[in-house]
Amino acid sequence: MTTEPNTAPKMTARGVNVFYGDKQAIDDVSIDVYRDHVTAFIGPSGCGKSTFLRTLNRMNDTVAGARVTGDIRLDGEDIYAPEMDVVQLRARVGMVFQKPNPFPKSIFDNVAYGPKIHGLATSKSELEGIVESALTRAGLWGEVKDRLQDSGTALSGGQQQRLCIARAIAVDPETVLMDEPCSALDPIATAKIEELIHELRGRYAIVIVTHNMQQAARVSQRTAFFHLGKIVEYGATTDIFTNPREERTKDYITGRYG
């Protein structure tokens, strides 16, 4: 497992602050995210890791009163620049949410939704190809290929979450953000999702927020420890977990608080 990336970072953040009204949620965060690495954000609840994650595809825009300062770039492009198109940005930086949120539509329509709105398929057969490959990559094809017209909400929780991952990767994003994707799932479903993350690594830059340190250790190559809206420590996962530089990191991963 490589510990230091040898490519240019996929996304870079420099001096990012997030405010909700007067309250500062993120304080001067800087970080690099690499394409062939899974990056995990860990930290106690309320430390701002999810908030920061949502700045990476500008989902904070949908929250009234939220304000982001600093510099976040995707392949060197400033994503908060006025000329940056937020619709395109979100297609390039996909997101998977904490609770599975399939649309109340059929499984097929759930996955086809993104490609359809972005016009990624020129024909029905091409669309079916995209859906199949997304479901296959999400490890769900075998389970659902005979019932693509069933409602997405009829699936089990773990299947729903994999459906949401399939939905996200169907538009062929460059980065996938995962906001505690396993927190609502049972251990077996969690294991499947983690396996999926392994398989997706290399194809997409993946950022995963988790409150489960074992999970961070299992799936990620780089880990950032958030505390009170700041990054306390960021480095190779093996280093963070075996040899943390900061006392607070050590306290957290050994379970002294959090």
């Binding site: 490519t7 240019a8 770039r73 392949d75 060197g76 400033d78 000329e83 395109q88 016009g119 460059e174």
Partner: peptide, 24 residues
């Protein structure tokens, strides 16, 4: 989009990038 991209597109990202930039 930025007038001068800071770094050239890397690896596979190039095709994805160009897809969004295509005239269609």
């Amino acid at each position: 989009m930025n007038n001068a991209p800071a770094s050239p597109p890397v690896g596979a990202a190039a095709s994805v990038e160009s897809r969004w930039a295509s005239p269609e």
